[in-house]
């Protein structure tokens, strides 16, 4: 079934989709504080763990769900 681009969505529309995905990506990163270099580097000096928290949770969330989809043949790797 998925990815949808191969079956239901033409390649041109996929680029527009990429643009909107990017808007969400940029919005969330900035909201989380990734626009601050001091926050980013804080992970390596032990005073700010935002990067680790965001990464870890996004990985668990996406991995869990993509595995779930994968088990139903929704997403082919």
């Amino acid at each position: 079934m998925a990815p949808l681009v191969n079956e239901f969505i033409p390649a041109q529309i996929d680029l527009i989709f990429a643009f909107f995905i990017g808007i969400f990506f940029g919005y969330i990163l900035e909201q989380a504080g990734f626009s601050s270099s001091r926050k980013l580097v804080g992970l390596f000096y032990g005073y700010d763990f935002t990067v680790l928290r965001v990464f870890f949770y996004s990985r668990i969330n996406c991995n869990g769900r993509s595995n779930y989809f994968n088990s139903f043949w929704f997403v082919k790797y």
Binding site: A32, Y57, S58, N61, S66, V75
Partner: peptide, 17 residues
């Protein structure tokens, strides 16, 4: 933010592969 980022990533994988 992590959960939302994961959802965006999942959407990208689901739609664009």
């Amino acid at each position: 933010a992590g959960v939302l980022l994961g959802l965006v990533l999942l959407l990208a994988i689901f739609v664009s592969g």
